[in-house]
Structure formats: structure tokens, C-alpha cells
Design a protein around this nucleic acid. Structure first.
Lengths: 229, 229
DNA sequence: TCAAAAGTGTTCACCGTACACCCATGG
DNA sequence: CCATGGGTGTACGGTGAACACTTTTGA
């Protein structure tokens, strides 16, 4: 089919990934040292350009893999960043992506040969271009998501304590929560399994380990259950 | 500054606008007959290509104005549509925008010389490319927005009846609501002014007209008041 | 024995929801 | 006088939020 689009402008399209992790009772993001001009050597989100025959999702996965070795994670698009002068190199529109991952699961993937590094969200360095804005938008989205559906699946190790779960929500919302209300809330959701195992690292008494029950969760979702948290 | 981006692919970027209106107790969208190939002559969203030195917001406004004569309305970006073969003409990524407008306020603007036409959301024709998906996404966003903040400001005429307001929410959520609860809810929000005027069109008794109180609304927003509806 | 974290229930206020009858008017 | 839409209030159950003490055990 003949195209009548020949007179139109073409531009560069990029993807930038905000990867969230959780460890040491703290919400973290993964950053890389940019290795090309402009702004070479500065901390930046994990980003790269879209290729012509590729979807944005694919580009995000490819870019993430090439800069960190991480693969097979679910990323979700946030929004477009499009200020005319956002990239001093050349007019580029960027689509921000974000994902939640379990740090330990993926640590081995980028331990060598990559410049990727985890930073606590609280004291991350300032980033190039409009990447700080992107992180900000991603945190807002994460906050919303956390109030809509349980997010522990992705960010926590398979077995976790109630304390870890609570600290996760506290660091996402940057607030402190009442332990009893928090636990009651999650109990009423009925998607956790209490294991017969204790974690003795964090206290003398030891605290029970839990797992998410994916099946129960899926069943509830399919029954239209709402996970307002 | 020297750019090192020269090896990267460039693509076409488009914007497509979903314009919502409300009239005859029905939610409507504005469509145009596409006047270039491919798919010339078919119904489509209001769309066009981004120019290199333009933001997406500007492009959306420009495109909307050029195809309908409508200007000065607030549009919000939805998300990117990026399937590789979504546009058979050439690889194009499109950013969907949506806006809420009051049909009467803008009717004069596109009455002549434009092919734009309002369709009830319920019986709109099927659209080119992935535009039906875009409309679907826009409705979802609209539903969310309507539950988060009052939307009557944009979609209704300046003076409106409670019935109109309720029908608006009913058509957005495709549900029916209890009249008493609806009115109580809005009363408790305390952002409407009851006028000393009745609308006698729709009934013998006549129904009171209301107006939004923008000032009260702004004050409440700035006090952090939540408008969960 | 004590420090440090784990674990556990109840009460109350508020909000969402269900629900039915009288009113005013023009034809 | 009657058909049509307009207008109004209450009661109940569920949910979110506040709140404090006991238990365990390694050092």
C-alpha cells in the first residue's frame, strides 16, 4: 500500500526503565552510568533507542538486558516524556517504563561487567535529562498500584516476614503504618500462607515466614474481588 | 554539542484525540472522516503527525484545531500505541490523548467545513487501525477519573440539573445509580450551588438548576480534600 | 534478667448502600 | 385528575483507624 506520509517529520524514540527493588527495608532503584555522549559518565536510568521493527515493550526488555543482564521481567509503560529540549543531543521522545523486581533473584545477572547499581530511592544521585521526573512519575504510579493490588509478589523474596511486607509498603508510601491494622488487613485479604518456618535473622524470638498464594490470588481476581489496600 | 545518535532509527510519531462530550443523556465521542490514504473515507479519531519542534500536547491541540476548529481545551495524554503493524502506511507510534468538552460550547466551531461528527459511545462505527482500542482505553481512564474527581465541570453546560449530572455518571460507568444516594453524595461534597432557577424542559414540575462552585472546589483541593465518588 | 522484636483484639466513627413515598404541574 | 418526572431521610452493616500489653529468647 502506498504511503502518503512522506512529508512528515521522523524522530528518535527512546525507552527509559525505572526498575524498583526492595532490600534492607528500603525501596531502591537501579541506575547505570551512561556510556555515551552527551552526559557520558553520569548516572541515568536504563535507557536506549527504539528500533523501527520493534515494539516499545520489546525495546524496553532489550535495553534492560543489554545494560544489566536482567531478563524476563514484566515491565509496564508509564508515559511519554516529550519536552523539545529534554535531550540536548537530538530531539527524542522517551517512553518511561517501570518494573518491580526481587533484588536477590536478579543479582547474579548483573554482578559482573555491568555498571548497574542499586540506590535507595531516598538518596539516589540526581539524574540526567528529565530522568528525575520519570522516577517521580514511577513512584506515583507505584503508590497507586500498591493501593490497588498486592505488590509483594514481585518485590519480596519468596518467603518473607510480616515486618518485611509492612516495611515495603511503608517505604513505598513514605509513611508509617500500624502493625496490627496492617496485619489484619492482609489477613482479611486471605492471599498469604503462613509457613511453619521462622526467620531468626532479625530477632531473638524469630518471626513467621509467609508466602503469597498465587492461586488464591488469581481466583479472587477472577471473581472480581477488589484488593483495595 | 555533538550528537552520537546518528545510527539510530527514526520513526513517525502521531497523536490521536478521543474527545468526549455529553448530550441527550448520553456519552459521546467526536470522530472524523479520514481524508488521506490509507483508509481514506473511514471514520477515525482526530489524529495527525507530530512535528519535530513541537511537544505532544501542542501537536494534539494543533491537530484537533485543524480537523474540527475546536481550540483551547485541556487534553491529557493516555498512552502510546505501538504495534509494529498498527498503521499499514508506515511504522508509526501514536500517543492517544483524551479530553472532555461541553458539546454546546464548541458546536459553532466545527459546524461548517469539517467532517467531525458526534457519535454516542454505544453505537459508534468501528474505527480504523487500533482506534477502537484507544477509545476503550480512554473510557477506562474516564471511568477512573470520574471516581477520583468531579468531572461535571467539563462535560456539562454551565447550568445543569441533578438528573443530567446523574445521567452523566451513569453513562460513563454504564450503570444505574440510586437518585437519593447520588444527590446525598454530591451534597456532601459541597461543591455545587443550587440556583434560583428551574429547568422546565424535561418535566412539568421543573427541576432545579445547579452550578459548580469552582472556588469552593479549588479550596477543597488545596486543603487536600479527597473527591472519591 | 533484660533488651529487642513478635504477636495479638476491640472499640468507635464514618461512609456506602438499600430503600419508598409525596409533590408539583401541564395537559 | 392523572401521568410524569422531581424531590427528600433513615437505618444498618462494614470498613478504616486508633489503641497497649504480653511473649519469646539470645546475650
Amino acid at each position: 500500500m502506498l504511503s502518503s506520509y512522506s512529508a512528515e517529520d521522523k524522530l528518535l524514540l527512546a525507552v527509559d526503565c525505572i526498575i524498583f527493588g526492595f532490600g534492607d527495608e528500603d525501596l531502591k532503584i537501579l541506575l547505570v552510568k551512561r556510556d555515551f555522549e552527551p552526559e557520558k559518565g553520569k548516572w541515568s536510568l536504563i535507557g536506549g533507542f527504539l528500533k523501527k521493527e520493534e515494539t516499545l515493550d520489546k525495546a524496553a526488555s532489550r535495553v534492560l538486558y543489554s545494560l544489566t543482564g536482567i531478563h524476563n521481567i514484566y515491565m509496564e509503560a508509564l508515559s511519554a516524556f516529550d519536552a523539545v529540549d529534554r535531550d540536548p543531543g537530538e530531539r527524542t521522545i522517551s517512553i518511561a517504563y517501570y518494573a518491580l523486581i526481587n533484588i536477590e533473584d536478579h543479582n547474579h545477572e548483573f554482578s559482573n561487567g555491568y555498571s548497574a547499581k542499586w540506590f535507595s530511592v531516598k538518596d539516589a544521585p540526581s539524574l540526567i535529562f528529565d530522568h528525575d521526573q520519570m522516577v517521580h512519575a514511577a513512584i506515583n504510579r507505584l503508590r497507586y498500584r500498591a493501593s490497588t493490588k498486592p505488590i509483594g509478589f514481585e518485590l519480596l523474596p519468596e518467603k518473607f516476614t510480616m515486618r518485611q511486607l509492612q516495611k515495603l509498603y511503608e517505604s513505598i508510601w513514605d509513611t508509617s503504618l500500624d502493625k496490627r491494622n496492617f496485619i489484619n488487613k492482609f489477613r482479611s485479604l486471605d492471599i498469604l500462607v503462613k509457613l511453619d518456618e521462622k526467620d531468626k535473622e532479625s530477632s531473638r524470638k524469630g518471626s513467621w515466614l509467609y508466602q503469597f498464594d498465587q492461586e488464591k490470588y488469581d481466583r479472587k481476581v477472577s471473581e472480581g474481588f477488589m484488593f483495595k489496600i
